[in-house]
Design a protein around this nucleic acid. Structure first.
Lengths: 323, 323
DNA sequence: TTGTATGCGTTATCAG
DNA sequence: CTGATAACGCATACAA
């Protein structure tokens, strides 16, 4: 356990006062070149690193960002959060931030956690995922002036805040157009019940691409493989059934693909490992990019005090044998 | 943004000195019952929470635990880390710890990160995953007396440290016995090249269950679906081929299952979403439990100063249609 | 049992 | 341009 090297150690080594060392670190232009170099060398030689706790006490900035890790439901798109988290961690480090994890059973518990995290660790900001209509979390944070960014648009909310999202409608539209180009003329959609921003967005991409006359080729259900099976079976059993299915998730798509007769194409959403293994065509979100932009936005608010513009990223279609 | 409520606020509210408040918090038995209650009430009313930064400066304890988030390779068993992380986060909170994430390209970069995290955030401890033979990380930490626990045994390492692991051999043995019970007489194994502790462990479970005369029914390859396909094809093309395959991972199993003729059973490892979707029988690790025990062990070292005994957990076999 | 003084490492303010 | 001093919130000797 190496001795703790503080600003005083550096000062002694460089024959300057502690304050000068601090100046070299925070306001280098105030220090004469020669002195600056000497201090920098001492810092390098001693391997000095500023202690965040002490710095926090003084500045009120912890350089800590928090993000919730959600329990994996059926696990299939757990990989989405996983990749997002990894992207966040990688993007945050060079910007001088670290990622703190927290778990919460529901939105209320999450708010209680905000309160705790803010009071005890003085977090600099939050990254929220899975935003939805009437999200109480964003208003709670906004009311208190806590910096945050959401991965997901503020669906229907009047209060605006920095956000990053992926254009889901563009994704399902691309999948639908791909199916049209492959010769399919009747293309169905399996999605989630109306009212979820993400789900409605993804459905709208399909709806726009197929046109109003196919609006009925459409089923809604909660997410899951079994649910996808059931919905697909239902949709394929009508008279004049679709010959291709666009799904709001890989879970639904996996279910649909399992019951789809040969020749019926299926496309999913999120390009999860399951899609890869099943050979499912799927819409891929640029998660690492999204995470990086979240960090950018939050860092912008924190460091620059600017109110950054939202970011809408484009997904890409990964074509496999299923469609 | 509510005013910051410090120990002084509480003291004023309860008409005592700051020190008395601190005593109520840290050494309650030193404070008269009546006073203690008054202070506790003030704490509750004001919603006081001890500031970690200030506490850290005094005590040297940050109540922060760090864990590495790895890039997902083929993503299939990314879900393993994901569930482990979630378990860690949930188990840490009630114990008074938070989880900090970091990313690192390789072991050397990881060590550099330790150094940084220790110096800047004064982390209390680390949870290491993916331990392997000759792991430089554990020796680095051990040399410096940094508390840590590994999820994974110290394969072949002489230096011992607290660890939690799942008995992989027991898992593959259970899978093998299940296949034997189902009437299979020739059971092969697809695993990773010799030298990986985890891989060798999983192979040994199979080897023990089938006996020496079937030792040749065995292929090694790096992890991956395509690799599993190739290995299975190879193993099934010998004369007198196996009628069942036990695999060291769901990735390998997914590949094997794809090329296995009907009647040939396949079992995987890790019970990932892919296994669920494919209907793959697989060995499930108790990840939430493992994570909780990691926290227990680390908290034991940190709070109790005890050197806790290692924990070896038993996996369970999830039987599906593939075997 | 309660209160007072001090320092953890840093940065901000202000003199030199 | 550089150096002394205070303050952030808390906990620990020590004194009362």
């Amino acid at each position: 356990m190496a001795d703790k090297v503080t600003i005083a150690t550096v000062a002694a080594h460089a024959n300057v006062s502690r304050q000068t060392v601090s100046n070299v670190l925070n306001t280098p232009h105030l220090v004469r070149e020669e002195t600056r170099e000497r201090v920098r060398e001492a810092i390098a030689v001693l391997g000095y690193r500023a202690n965040q706790a002490a710095r926090l006490m003084r500045t009120g900035r912890s350089h800590l960002l928090a993000v919730r890790i959600e329990p994996t439901h059926d696990g299939i798109n757990g990989s989405v959060l996983d990749r997002f988290l990894h992207g966040l961690t990688e993007a945050a480090a060079p910007a001088g931030y670290r990622i703190l994890l927290y778990a919460a059973a529901d939105d209320q518990a999450e708010i209680a956690t905000y309160d705790d995290l803010l009071a005890t660790y003085e977090l600099d900001g939050f990254v929220l995922t899975s935003t939805h209509h009437g999200d109480v979390r964003t208003s709670w944070l906004a009311e208190r002036g806590v910096p945050f960014v959401t991965f997901g648009r503020p669906w229907g909310a009047q209060d605006s805040h920095p956000w990053v999202d992926v254009d889901g409608a563009a994704g399902t539209a691309a999948a639908t157009r791909h199916l049209l180009a492959a010769g399919h003329r009747r293309i169905g959609f399996i999605g989630w019940p109306e009212g979820s921003g993400v789900g409605d967005d993804r459905r709208s991409g399909w709806a726009g691409a197929v046109g109003r006359e196919q609006a009925h080729l459409h089923r809604t259900t909660v997410d899951g493989v079994a649910e996808g099976e059931a919905a697909a079976r239902d949709l394929l059993s009508i008279s004049d059934p679709p010959t291709a299915l666009v799904c709001a998730s890989d879970s639904l798509a996996a279910g649909a693909y399992a019951v789809a007769p040969p020749g019926v194409a299926v496309a999913g959403f999120d390009d999860t490992p399951v899609a890869r293994v099943l050979g499912l065509t799927s819409v891929a979100q640029p998660l690492a990019e999204a995470a990086a932009r979240c960090v950018d936005l939050l860092a912008g608010v924190l460091d620059g005090g600017t109110a950054p513009r939202p970011v809408l990223l484009q997904p890409s279609l990964v074509i496999r044998q299923s469609a």
